[in-house]
Design a protein around this nucleic acid. Structure first.
Lengths: 139, 139
DNA sequence: CTGGCTGCAAATCTTTTGCATCCTG
DNA sequence: CAGGATGCAAAAGATTTGCAGCCAG
């Protein structure tokens, strides 16, 4: 539960933080800071951008959410802090979660001395919606 | 060769483009637009940011280089247009290429109707340099 | 009560754009 | 010589910061 998450992280429980976590919970859209700000503004007219960014950054630090570096224009946020991969539509840029556990072995001689601790896979493709649109505009 | 790349893409051969490709060639640093701009400015005082961005975008469109969306702060560019993966240091954010061909099978029921055409793996870890620094500051 | 948090505005940083001029093909 | 390319400056976005006032613990 949200309150839990915040308290566990040793943070103060403010209405703004609850609103953000509430919006994020079960959200599969991987929203940007602006998406979050706008959505919350409707019910919470005093919310400010600074608070959104502060909160997201704090939650990320505490490991409660993930920041995605997938969109070249802006950061997006993923409420699911567990490691997982993403499916990205090349046309509409929609991002879906994909939960598969791959065992990716990196041979020692390719590691360049790195100690590898994790990985993240982006799968690129075309989503069903865009495939439909494309078939409708044969040249 | 650089001139080749540009001509093949059906572009005009300008000194600016040559300078950018020259800087990029064999560059393993995955530089940002600013890195490129600054580096070239020294020998080419009239170079402008707009030209750097225009050129990079054009080259990317033509498939001559790749744009990386790995750094949350800014775009980075990879002179190697062939598909490959990246090794990223969690501490100093250094990015290295890693050439391994993984066969990643995605079961039909996890595809959400997507038609998958490619993938990109980011391996996270600690580079040798940072490992050394860390061992030097035991708590 | 007190330190962490919020909200506002201004600042910063990256990237894009409009447009006059230039120069490659 | 025409259209694509450049360079400048200004604009547009996204994110960060400073700081006064507020409120959760």
């Amino acid at each position: 539960m949200d309150r839990q998450k915040i308290k566990e992280a040793g943070l103060k429980l403010t209405p703004q933080r609850l609103a953000i976590l509430d919006y994020l919970r079960d959200n599969l859209e991987h929203p940007s800071a602006e998406d979050i700000y706008k959505a919350i503004l409707e019910r919470f007219p005093t919310m400010s951008f600074a608070t959104v960014y502060n909160t997201l950054e704090t939650l990320r630090e505490k490991g409660a959410i993930q920041e995605l570096t997938i969109d070249p224009q802006k950061k997006r946020f993923d409420p699911n802090p567990r490691p997982h991969h993403h499916l990205i539509c090349n046309r509409c840029k929609k991002i879906l979660d994909i939960h598969i556990d791959y065992q990716l072995h990196v041979p020692e001689e390719k590691k360049n001395g790195f100690e590898i601790v994790g990985n993240h896979i982006e799968f690129y493709g075309i989503c069903p919606g865009c495939r439909l649109k494309m078939s409708g505009m044969q040249s």
